[in-house]
Design a protein around this nucleic acid. Structure first.
Length: 495
RNA sequence: GGCGGGGUAGCUCAGCAGGUAGAGCAGCCGGCUCAUACCCGGUAUGUCGGGGGUUCAAGUCCCCCCCUCGCUACCA
């Protein structure tokens, strides 16, 4: 049983922001879930390092291109460490092996006749240094800066995606390839309007993988970038690894790069006679005051700042709980705090705290050996079934809702049994059941909030970590005579 | 313009094989007091965007209109 999960590789010209963190945390959570479920998981992420913008940025800063990309890729790696991203491999498109793979694929497609040479015509805005499509072809103005554009034409290699139109349409219709569902129609519409072949070489871009042809071309960065999903898992280099994990099970992307991933990427795989990914899931944006978060609008959300104030797990929890995965979400400090206080502090945090306090005061901190009763075991089993189903369909917020219903149930259970009452005769039984419930909740929560889970785990005095035994631990009873450790507040309430 | 979503409690949304509206949060009342002033119970509120139609019965089906969002090809 294997699972291959990817994030996009991030374009290192930009500083990482909440959007990058979002995609990567989602992928990490799913990867952790499948590991705990006993799968062999390969989780790929990395950086996209070619292109004119990067070249220019390096020049502007007066550093060598090598130093520039090395330094910038490191900022991503550092952030992923800070977010405890459990990637299997971090790929860079400047790696020799990747570059070789890209060239090999180019040659393959050329030989197959899926690449051909033609003139690329487009409108170019010199001040913006970018291609764009003007609204009015008779009076071409740049959509960004509104200045006149030049029509330019240059020879280029084209990838014959038009050839795969029917095949792609059929695949999308019959599979869960495009997620969320509402994107499926969008993509199908686009395909049905007819696919145009795409240019995959550039003449005027110096910083890129040189195309394996006699002329002086570099390979278009998008073509280069998509291939990371192949080169990152050993395509043409490590046949064992590749055949074990191919195809991807879930590829996470932002909704801005749907075109590349739902159209060009599958066509590339058709051309290479490779099976397509099972699912490519496009998530939404975080907005702040209705605007998409971006540096230029000055409404960026710094993951570091949130972590400083609330902790890493609060951030991870919020991002995956607040909004159904796939839709846009609104971020504000107020919304964040509300979610944090009501779910993490009041419901989960307080449940753990009050229970441990009772174990300390009523049972000298020793968890007794009366096993959980059938009712709790049954309910836990049902919750796990639902949780698992939600996770498998990548409905993170729904999975968390299931767990929180369970946490509410445990709080209610404690209230009804009231083991703090004078003369309560079965304190030990009640608390053991509650502890069993907390342990179960923590196991299910571990993919989302790995750190807090471990800390709670240790407070309970349990052995190893919740990850080490995976979900099968849910069926096992808590060992006898466990001694709880010093209590601390994991999610302090915020004023 | 074309195609596709939406418009339901203060907020975020669920309900849509048609049978006189639900959840979470916020609010209010009460209980409890082991606990992070927490938890538990109870509870109000809605002309279900507007109009017309089908039906014994319509957020739920049909038609028209209004508003809103997304997609409508090469920036990574």
């Amino acid at each position: 049983m294997k699972v291959y999960i990817t994030t996009p590789i991030y374009y290192i010209n930009a500083e990482p922001h909440i959007g990058h963190a979002y995609t990567t945390i989602a992928a990490d959570t799913l990867a952790r879930f499948y590991r705990m479920a006993g799968y062999d998981v390969f989780f790929l992420t990395g950086t996209d390092e070619h292109g004119q913008k990067i070249y220019d940025a390096a020049k502007k800063q007066n550093v060598s291109i090598k130093d520039f990309v090395d330094r910038n890729t490191e900022t991503y790696r550092k952030l992923w460490n800070m977010l405890h991203i459990s990637y299997t491999r971090f790929i860079r498109t400047t790696e020799l092996e990747h570059e070789e793979t890209v060239r090999n694929i180019f040659t393959k497609l050329l030989q197959k006749g899926d690449l051909y040479k033609d003139d690329y015509t487009g409108y170019y805005c010199i001040p913006c240094e970018s291609y764009a499509i003007p609204e009015d072809e008779n009076n071409p103005l740049c959509p960004d800066c509104k200045r006149p554009m030049n029509k330019i034409s240059e020879p280029s290699y084209f990838f014959r995606i038009s050839k795969y139109t029917k095949q792609l349409e059929k695949y999308i219709e019959e599979n869960n390839f495009v997620k969320p569902d509402f994107r499926k129609n969008e993509v199908l519409n686009f395909i049905r309007s007819g696919l145009h072949d795409v240019s995959i070489t550039r003449k005027n871009v110096e910083w890129g993988i040189s195309a394996p042809v006699s002329e002086n071309y570099t390979i278009y960065v998008w073509f280069d970038a998509l291939i990371n999903y192949l080169s990152g898992i050993g395509y043409l280099h490590n046949e064992n690894l590749f055949s074990k994990f191919w195809p991807p099970d879930v590829q996470f992307i932002g909704k801005d790069i749907i075109r590349f991933h739902h159209i060009i990427w599958p066509c590339l795989l058709f051309a290479l006679d490779l099976p397509l990914p099972k699912t490519i899931f496009a998530h939404g944006w975080w907005t702040s005051g209705k605007d998409k978060i971006s540096k230029s609008k000055g409404n960026t959300i710094s993951p570091e700042k949130i972590i400083d104030e609330y902790g890493l797990d609060a951030l991870r929890y919020f991002l995956l709980r607040e909004v159904p995965f796939g839709l846009d979400g609104e971020y504000s400090e107020d919304i964040f705090k509300k979610r944090y206080n009501s779910d993490l502090a009041n419901d989960l945090g307080n449940l753990v705290n009050r229970t441990l306090n009772l174990v300390e005061t009523k049972m000298s901190g020793i968890i007794g050996n009366i096993p959980a009763n059938m009712e709790i075991i049954k309910i836990t089993g049902e919750v796990f079934e639902k949780y698992q189903a939600k996770m498998q369909k990548i409905a993170f917020s729904e999975a968390l809702e299931e767990i929180w219903r369970y946490i509410s149930f445990l709080n209610r259970f404690l209230d009804e049994k009231a083991p703090w009452r004078e003369g309560c005769s079965n304190v030990e039984e009640i608390l053991n059941n509650t502890i069993y419930g907390i342990r179960s909740a923590i196991i299910m929560l571990t993919p989302f909030i790995p750190d807090a889970s471990i800390r709670i785990w240790q407070m309970l005095g349990l052995e190893e970590t919740p990850e080490s035994n995976g979900f099968k631990l849910l069926n096992q009873k808590i060992p006898e005579g466990i001694k709880t450790n010093k209590r601390e507040i994991i999610f302090p309430r915020k004023k």
